Amino acid sequence: MTLTPTEHVLLARVARHYYLEDRSKSDIADELGISRFRVARLLDTARREGVVSIRIESPTGYDTELSMRLQQMFGLAHAVVVTAEDDEPDTLRALLGRVTAEVLHGVVTRDDVLGLAWARSLRGIAHEGAKPLAPCPVVQLTGALSGPDGSDVLDLVRRVAKASNGVPHVFYAPLVAPDAASARSLRRQPEVMRAAALAEQVTVAVVGVGAWEPELSTIYDMVDPVARRRTGELGAIGEISGALIDRDGNALEAPLTRRIIGVTGDQLRHVDTVISVAYGPAKAPALLAALRGGLVNGVVTHAGLARALLDVAAEAGLDEAGVRSGRVR
């Protein structure tokens, strides 16, 4: 479109009033003695002719474009992708834990029951300076594994509850028992039974994601070679804070399953909001399986894993509708 100098000036004047001075179309029309509809057409022309350009910048530390792509592809209520200059696991774990705390601050209400599973990536949720959550019960969803700093899921549950004036519900048991008989005995302990009953009432849960490969799952690394091999042969692609899953996100029944003390895949599917915290591009197939199987409907991750997740979804031939259908069964 060829514009006269007068039209260029008019476009610029209308655009300045509207975009920079935040004036209404009606006010602009009154001042310039033209109709409101002409103002609207002039604004459209200003965009089309490049007089006005709009650029959306991501806040520092976040990749909003990738976040929106994950939301759209997987139908997620919560998807936050962070940018990280350092991809070292310890750095990512601390960063993702802090961001997850911010997400929970905006999600959890006093009417919720918050469940926290064991995962190294969750330790940073209760970092110093974190905003307190709405006071609500905080439930331990899995047995414990201690981190290098001595922290474990019991410590995490207690700190989150204390900071929010909520009530912690913890139990003393390992995440993986030596054998199925020991696990059965542990599950009969009163505090474990109370926590298991409360787990059925959880409305918001936070879990970690592990791939069934060396150094990509603490559970994989801690169990004996026979259990690793047998679980892999039965189709395990990953674990969601101890809940073993196959490539389609189905709960996997394996001898190792009977040794794990914690929330199951079937239980996670009935929780309103399940936020997964994951790092490392190699975990993309496991995270995709969790999404397809409806175990999680929220993701906090970093750009490297987000891109890998979109890539493996494309390689699997999944479009938006196909992936989104997996959450509700």
Rank of each mutant, 00 (worst) to 15 (best):
T4M: 09
A12E: 15
H17W: 15
Y18K: 11
Y18F: 15
L20Y: 07
D30F: 10
E31P: 07
R38H: 15
A40S: 15
E49F: 04
S58N: 08
P59S: 05
T60M: 07
T64Y: 11
Q71S: 12
Q72W: 14
Q72Y: 15
A77Y: 12
V82L: 10
V82D: 05
D87L: 13
P89E: 04
L96F: 14
R98F: 10
T100L: 09
A101T: 02
E102V: 06
H105L: 06
H105P: 02
V113S: 05
A119T: 05
I125F: 03
A134H: 11
G143C: 08
G147A: 12
V153M: 05
V153C: 08
R158D: 12
V160W: 02
V160A: 03
S164K: 02
N165E: 13
A180T: 11
A183K: 06
Q189C: 10
E191N: 10
A195G: 06
V202C: 04
V206C: 08
V206W: 03
A211L: 05
E215H: 14
T218S: 12
Y220C: 00
Y220R: 00
P225L: 12
P225W: 14
R230N: 08
R230G: 01
G232D: 04
E233M: 15
G242M: 06
A243E: 01
I245M: 03
R247D: 12
R247H: 13
E253K: 13
A254V: 04
L256M: 09
R259S: 10
G265C: 00
Q267N: 12
L268W: 09
R269E: 07
V271P: 02
G280N: 02
K283D: 00
A286I: 00
L288S: 03
G294F: 01
L295S: 01
V296D: 00
N297G: 00
N297I: 00
G298N: 03
A314S: 13
R327S: 13
V328R: 15
